[in-house]
Design a protein around this nucleic acid. Structure first.
Length: 269
DNA sequence: AAGGCACACAACCGCCAGAGA
DNA sequence: CTCTCTGGCGGTTGTGTGCCT
């Protein structure tokens, strides 16, 4: 309300993209590279909003996009990262090569949030769920689908599957430490944030059993995290203990794998 | 066979932050 | 310092598809 739209929508197409539009966009970006989304549609001969072009490219047309089902490894990693970062889909996507934030967000909303909800309601209510938990359905159709997912191994992975998870460096994404802090703080402060997922406990950083597979962040974020919690949390003593554990565990992982060195290198590059 | 329902996912929208004038 | 532009993010919506009754 009151805000000017990102572009004049008069005379612009909306809705699903045609193959012709896709081709125009791909050709243009291959010739001129990404960026300048605002002027791109005009130059490429597209009657689309620049934002729409950007989204289409990033979420669908990019050559390094990995199509197909989320693997159990990715599934597990998404759960872990979400338990730690909350709905920071771009950060999570940064650790899953070929996956987009949109894809992960959709996957979470349609699969994982419901599964975790189901598991958590069996025990206790978990408060580390994402914003939209989705509607739980009790239809035979959905049950059937869930059974299929289970048989496909999506939710039956255990430590063995988790042990195969690879470590990926995060993209150099700018993150406000305080915002991350808020998320983690909300998770830590909201009772046990662990979510029982089958035989396995998914917690903030319970990764010691999987060979040090990790998550993306940087020292600045963690410094901010520690400072904020130290200074402002009403339950700071309890939070401190939990946080110290997590932070120590995280540092252990970094030392073990030399993640931070290469991550810093990637940032400096 | 038809209608209803739920799901999956592409696409849109509003807001925010950083850069530059 | 302020304003504008631009890119990026997360939440939400729209639509096609498949299953069930």
């Amino acid at each position: 309300m009151g805000r000017a739209p990102c572009c004049s929508k008069v005379g612009l197409y909306r809705g699903p993209w045609t193959t012709k539009e896709d081709t125009l966009l791909i050709n243009y970006i291959q010739a001129h590279g990404e960026g300048h989304w605002r002027s791109l549609p005009k130059k490429a001969g597209l009657l689309r909003c620049g934002k729409s072009c950007r989204l289409r490219w990033l979420n669908y047309l990019r050559p390094d996009i990995k199509r197909g089902n989320i693997t159990p490894d990715e599934d597990d990693l998404i759960i872990r990262l979400h338990s730690l970062l909350g709905n920071r889909w771009s950060l999570i996507a940064g650790r899953l090569p070929g996956r987009t934030d949109n894809e992960i967000k959709n996957y979470w909303n349609s699969h994982l949030s419901k599964r975790l909800m189901k598991n958590s309601t069996a025990g206790h209510k978990s408060q580390c769920m994402g914003g939209s938990a989705g509607k739980e359905s009790g239809t035979k159709a959905s049950n059937k689908r869930k059974q299929k997912e289970d048989s496909d191994g999506i939710s039956s992975q255990n430590g063995e599957a988790a042990a195969k998870i690879k470590i990926y460096l995060p993209k150099a994404t700018k993150v406000c430490p305080s915002s991350v802090t808020k998320y983690i703080q909300s998770m830590i402060g909201s009772s046990p944030s662990n979510v029982e997922d089958g035989d396995r406990t998914v917690s903030g950083l319970k990764t010691a059993n999987n060979g040090g597979q990790g998550w993306g962040s940087n020292n600045e974020e963690l410094d901010g995290l520690v400072c904020d919690l130290d200074s402002s949390s009403p339950n700071s003593l309890q939070n401190d203990i939990v946080l110290d554990d997590i932070f120590g565990e995280y540092q252990q992982l970094l030392k073990t794998d030399g993640i931070m060195d290469s991550f810093v290198d990637s940032l400096l590059a």
